[in-house]
Design a binder for these strands. Structure first.
Lengths: 249, 249
DNA sequence: CAGGTTTCTGCGTTTTTTTGCAGGAATACC
DNA sequence: GGTATTCCTGCAAAAAAACGCAGAAACCTG
């Protein structure tokens, strides 16, 4: 990995998470802690970041403190993202939906991971594009402005042509009885196609959305292979899903 | 292998993978590391790539790469955008390439305009999405990280299926003798398809790029219907294009 | 076509950059 | 106050770059 490349990655991480720990960076990128420190030093001298004991902060950070609930659910999503990443192997073809949980997954992907990611969500695609070793395939069609995702028959047809190894599905609502449900008809059509095409479907959901129902049905529990939440697999809230045969992580 | 040939290959590799290692290049092309280094040096001096220790990176790494021409050429591009907008009518289907000039066009679009815009460029699409009355169609395929545009046979096939009223083409280089030329092979393929599909092709170019040539040919002057620059149509710099039958605005 | 000039390329040497490591100093945490 | 990180300094090894040079190829030019 080139020095500039590494610094670009660090800078991206800082801007994304508002802070980085040099200790975690050096295991991620697999270089010595000294190298990270020198990188942070240089970036700091260029005014790109603020170096502090143990890591660095984003420049915009020290200005305003942001709402606690945002950070709170961000941490939950980070846990989910970590679990999801453990399911990814080098060389995989991975289809993902949109949504903030998937965004967090995209941000958390380790830099040395080599895989191909496919999506129709613009914000998620932008995130994938920042990663050094990831191939990005964009599903094209008409853009739904409110969900910022491509929707329509062309997109669905394209999804049906591929056979990804994994499909990560961000969920709006999941319930033991009604399965996965959503509130946007076009997005639901897309998700149905994604589930149908993929070898393995992994559903990402924060606990808050468990046992909630939305008007339009995406699929039943039998069609998903794994459910990932920020909770421990043994949590009583998840029991009904385990009983229904879903692998809970 | 000729020097120019070698440099074109290197440039292509950089545009494709966003980075190259001089060590891997010299085994690929089978020349000494010194030669590669000199090539990278030259390409870097021409502003095509960014040379770093151990290899080279594409320009997309440090976004803010044009400090001088930035705000300066922004005004020029705004003039071009205004002229381009005068050619748009409500209800049109408009295909656009990527690039900063097109970005400026996207930003300048009047809010009441109702039209359908089609593109494969991520930054441009983001801009279109902010407009209230514009339908956005995204061309999907593999994303070229450095040009931030979808490239590949799927994208080209999709473009060939449509018949837009207008095509706005951002140009890297235009010359009376060689026509429109560019330096990224995949982007050229895309532009060729765009020109072929469209009823009317309008070429946007800042004066700085007039009478410059890049290695790969996109099309001759006869294939474009209109050329828009920030200059007055009567400017002597544009005379050769008027003589060649291009409508200059 | 002969002779001269320029350009290109590879090789050996020197210089610079990068990176990791060790030991002591500074800092944070309990 | 004690302990554990983290930070800094100097140093050394490896990699890469720069430099000078020389042979070869290409290219004028009369």
């Amino acid at each position: 990995m080139l020095k500039k490349e590494r610094q670009a990655y660090i800078l991206h991480q800082v801007n994304l998470h508002n802070k980085v720990l040099s200790s975690s960076l050096c295991t991620e990128i697999n270089v010595s802690e000294d190298t990270i420190r020198r990188d942070l030093q240089e970036l700091s001298e260029e005014g790109k970041i603020i170096k502090v004991h143990g890591g660095a902060l984003s420049h915009s950070f020290n200005e305003v403190s942001f709402p606690i609930s945002g950070v709170y659910s961000q941490n939950q999503k980070r846990i989910i993202a970590q679990k999801a990443i453990s399911q990814i192997q080098n060389g995989m073809f991975i289809l993902t939906s949109g949504g903030t949980t998937i965004m967090e997954l995209a941000r958390t992907l380790p830099p040395q991971l080599k895989a191909t990611f496919i999506s129709g969500s613009i914000p998620v695609i932008l995130e994938y594009m920042h990663h050094p070793n990831i191939e990005v395939i964009l599903i094209g069609d008409k853009i739904s402005k409110n969900s910022k995702i491509t929707v329509g028959s062309e997109a669905i047809a394209k999804i049906k042509q591929i056979k990804p190894d994994l499909c990560f599905l961000g969920t709006n609502a999941i319930d033991a009885e009604h399965g996965i449900t959503d509130n946007d008809w076009e997005v639901v059509q897309l998700k149905k196609a994604m589930i149908e095409s993929s070898k393995k479907v992994i559903c990402l959901s924060i606990a808050e959305k468990i046992n909630t129902v939305q008007p339009i049905r995406v699929c039943g529990l039998s069609e998903i292979d794994m459910l990932i939440t920020e909770l421990e697999p043994g949590n009583p809230l998840l029991k009904t899903f385990v009983d229904a045969g879903v692998h809970v992580l």
